[in-house]
Design a binder for these strands. Structure first.
Lengths: 236, 236
DNA sequence: CGGTTGTTTGAACTGATTCAATCTGTGTGG
DNA sequence: CCACACAGATTGAATCAGTTCAAACAACCG
């Protein structure tokens, strides 16, 4: 059931569990879990962290989805990365060029870099763990570049939907699409008008069925082909 | 003089020096420098590492430029990252989705992950150093996404030229452009035909002057404005 | 000299944008 | 329960940026 993923009221999910499910050894997850932090509720599409703000925080998504975004000079917004539950945003030293907003209402655990760094420094395993996470994000970024640079608008939207389904661990071809059409446009480098047309086309072609925000992948093999979606890059 | 950067015959540049100039403490650079490795001459636009090959190597660029690339299903190539002298490609465990090719004739130092990892593990400072490098690459990737997703073709090419000038430490507004128009197209997600027109336009507008591969930035302030190029993201 | 690689140009075409209007669903307060 | 506001989705028509295809030209190199 995809809807389970949107019970952002599931207060029960601890940082410990989300990290373990991301592949971290339990004893190391404990270390981070015991780090002092607070849990914030983040409302979608409201300012959360603006571009240019100091980025001396560690964040982990407990539920919901966070986005990193940048804007070009004329204010057109581009979403450059997403963070699903269990994923995080590490401190980068200095200021961050990107802003952060929630895609849907999200629960985010926020700690301070000065608490986080010493813990990681003391455990090479943690360093390796986070390096792997960062490299996965890097791989996703590369795939997004191929998306924006080389695929047509249908493939771009299809690819995003496929990637999202995998990252949300959708099992039964039914997904509650978390994005507005404007957000899909901001991720795939298009206009919301065109995204609307693309989605309508995809439905007409029998790739998906829509009921409100609910999306059913009617033909997973075919949509993967259209999107040229090879999920290996997510498996790192 | 930009041309100095293309004397790939400058055998004298050691890994040690390139790492120190990238900000690493000398004693740590020594550790990596002493690691067993070989130096390869890589010819431009020939297969070097294919997508899907095991990525159990560390590479550092001594001279020249390396590119990481992916291709979409119909074979259209997208360059997703560049590595200038002093920059490197770290082992990612498992196989890499991207291929590697040189942009120009390059000297690359190649070591084995199994030699590299223990050294880094033994020194948290090295971990932090490489984390910072990776985060810089991440920031560059984000900027490229904005480029491909939100800027028009002139701004995209202008932005790439600005970024390249900064990363090559060009000082006097003269740069030996290292890219073919096809490569610019592969980076900015266009066709070489259009890149050609864009470059001609930029020259007509007085943004640049060209003499063969030599490019002169006639109006650095204006080209930065056109490109909406804010170099902060490179300074991490 | 012939072969190869890269650059330049033209003409026709098309995918996506822009602008503007309308429609739909949801939540809020009277 | 209705009226209203608001955010998001949908549609149409005109326009344009960038692609495609094809051909010519230039530079380099053994």
């Amino acid at each position: 059931m995809a809807s389970r993923r949107f019970k952002s009221a599931t207060q029960g999910v601890s940082l410990r569990e989300t990290l373990i499910s991301a592949g971290l050894e339990p004893y190391l997850a404990d270390l981070l879990d015991e780090m002092s932090h607070r849990v914030l509720q983040v409302e979608p599409r409201r300012p959360f962290r603006e571009p240019g703000a100091a980025r001396d925080e560690v964040m982990f998504v407990r539920s919901g989805i966070l986005s990193k975004f940048k804007s070009d000079s004329s204010g057109r917004r581009q979403i450059v990365a997403l963070r699903f539950p269990g994923e995080g945003i590490l401190p980068s030293g200095g200021i961050a060029e990107y802003g952060i907003q929630a895609i849907v209402r999200s629960e985010v655990m926020v700690g301070r870099a000065e608490d986080f760094d010493p813990i990681v420094d003391a455990h090479p395993e943690l360093h390796r763990f986070f390096r792997r996470l960062i490299q996965r994000n890097e791989a996703i970024g590369y795939e997004w570049l191929v998306n924006c640079g080389r695929r047509d608008s249908t493939a771009r939207v299809a690819h995003l939907l496929c990637e999202t389904a995998v990252r949300m661990h959708v099992k039964d071809a039914h997904m509650l699409n978390p994005f507005t059409q404007q957000q899909i446009a901001d991720i795939t480098g298009q206009t919301s008008v065109n995204v609307n047309r693309v989605l309508a086309d995809m439905e007409r072609q029998g790739l998906i069925r829509r009921k409100g925000r609910e999306i059913e992948f009617s033909d997973w093999t075919e949509i993967r082909r259209v999107a040229s979606f090879q999920p290996d890059y997510l498996a790192i």
